[in-house]
């Protein structure tokens, strides 16, 4: 499928650390289409952060790609040089914690303009020197996007320091920074977990509107299905480094087919009056179980689950599913 903005295919990645070789990602596989908001859901230890860093072309220290591809519009993101060209220009990034993303001693305007200076804007004249007029153009663009993220008085806001903004406003400014270069994809790493509930909903609605207005695709990483329901068109669920199920948001939330997705949904307070959890613990990436990594905690596990990793199958309703017990569904 060449019309994918971002495609991660069969990605297997291990990190060599002091304690040994950790098999962090094991056949991660999903794609983001132009203009869609794709959710990436998984609990802690599922390899989300490693995956994001790899997509940004900044894999963790000691990482080794064992197999697979990561491509942005057909361009190889596993090539550091190519990734550097794309990152910050065609892929925007919204970090998790707006409280730590800024340097407290510079104004927010100075910090974002500095980033724009190095990344440049797509409509910058070719080979132009960075001078007053170019800076003024960058500033004008920044003010335009700040207005789009509903920062009051954007001209004045540029000259203020990070601590003069609330967490929600800082997150808006970071979103503006990511949008300024007119990217076609934005990577959002749990952008609302550090925020309060009332602010979270504001930011989610803002992101949804911006994605539509600017026709930008988004890879939205979260652990909260409530957030997924608000913003994502499709979702890919990861468990312990493996992609287990990918489908449209209603498919996953209302009719999960993979046992892990099903059990995770059952934990959601809206889905059960009783307090339920998933027994057992996520296996360590140093000693992953053979085959399906969820098998040790799965009530439906059989011998077939541990003998080989279930491949990702296309089901008849259009989702991808990695479970041997759902093969008949596919």
């Amino acid at each position: 499928m060449s019309d994918d903005i971002l495609s991660v295919r069969d990605l297997k990645l291990s990190v060599k650390g002091d304690a040994g070789l950790a098999q962090i990602l094991d056949h991660v596989d999903f794609a983001v289409k132009p203009g869609e908001v794709m959710g990436l859901v998984g609990e802690s230890g599922c390899g989300k952060s490693t995956l994001i860093r790899t997509i940004l072309g900044l894999p963790p220290k000691g990482a080794r790609i064992d197999s697979g591809t990561v491509a942005f519009r057909g361009r190889n993101l596993l090539d550091p040089k190519e990734a550097q060209q794309i990152r910050g220009r065609e892929i925007g990034f919204i970090p998790q914690d707006p409280f730590q993303a800024f340097n407290p001693v510079f104004t927010v305007g100075a910090q974002i303009l500095e980033i724009l200076r190095w990344s440049g804007l797509p409509d910058d004249p070719k080979g132009a020197r960075y001078d007053k007029s170019l800076r003024a153009r960058h500033k004008a663009r920044l003010i335009e996007v700040l207005r789009a993220v509903q920062i009051p008085d954007p001209e004045e806001a540029l000259d203020r320091y990070p601590h003069q903004f609330s967490g929600g406003q800082r997150q808006r400014i970071l979103i503006a920074g990511a949008l300024a270069t007119r990217p076609s994809l934005i990577l959002a790493d749990e952008p609302t977990t550090a925020l309060d509930v009332t602010t979270q909903m504001q930011i989610l609605r803002l992101l949804r509107e911006l994605a539509a207005d600017y026709n930008v695709a988004m890879l939205f990483v979260t652990h909260d299905f409530g957030v997924v329901a608000q913003i994502c068109d499709r979702v890919s669920v990861m468990y312990a480094g493996q992609t287990v199920e990918t489908g449209t948001t209603p498919q996953i939330i209302d009719g999960p087919r993979h046992p892990y997705t099903g059990m995770l949904m059952a934990c959601h307070p809206e889905r059960s009056t009783e307090i339920t959890g998933i027994p057992g613990q996520v296996s360590s990436p140093l000693t992953p179980p053979p085959g399906c990594r969820f098998a040790p905690r799965c009530p439906r596990a059989t011998e077939a689950c541990t003998s080989a990793r279930p491949g990702l199958l296309n089901s008849r309703d259009g989702r991808q599913l990695a479970c041997v017990h759902e093969e008949e569904f596919a």
């Binding site: 929600g168 309060d196 009332t198 909903m201 609605r205 299905f225 409530g226 329901a229």
Partner: peptide, 23 residues
Amino acid sequence: RALLESAPTLTRQDSGQVIQGDP
């Protein structure tokens, strides 16, 4: 009421006024 409305549910909350501003 604003708090309860803002908590994300498993269905998309398109309607309803989101409370503006920060605490």
